[in-house]
Amino acid sequence: MQILEFIKDNLHLIYILILSVFIGVEVIKNIPAVLHTPLMSGANALSGVVIVGAILVMLQADPTDYIALTLGFMAVVLGILNVVGGFVVTDRMLQMFKKKKQ
């Protein structure tokens, strides 16, 4: 019963999850081997979207709750490292491919 209840309450979410899985699969299918590493690196940068959650943690934290603020600070630093590092590294790799095409 609880499971049915859960499905009823979260139907939108379930639709979104399923459709996103299919989009992810379709978008990535048949990638040439050359692009595996940049693709992995780019997808890795995208997983840094967790930074949004880290910012929300800090925004919602009670200003006197230093533990939450400290943890949030760490989460933001780590998340943005993943984002910035990931995109810059991917760009560097792809730059090299581009150079040769001339």
Binding site: S20, G24, I28, A43, N44, S47, V49, G53
Partner: peptide, 27 residues
């Protein structure tokens, strides 16, 4: 990332995270 997105009902985290999850799995 998608799971933390569910905590905040945050669409960009949910969809972004799942995209990476399924793309990574295909790879």
């Amino acid at each position: 990332a998608a799971i933390t997105g569910i905590l905040y009902s945050n669409m960009v985290m949910i969809v972004g995270g799942i995209l990476v999850g399924s793309a990574g799995l295909i790879l």
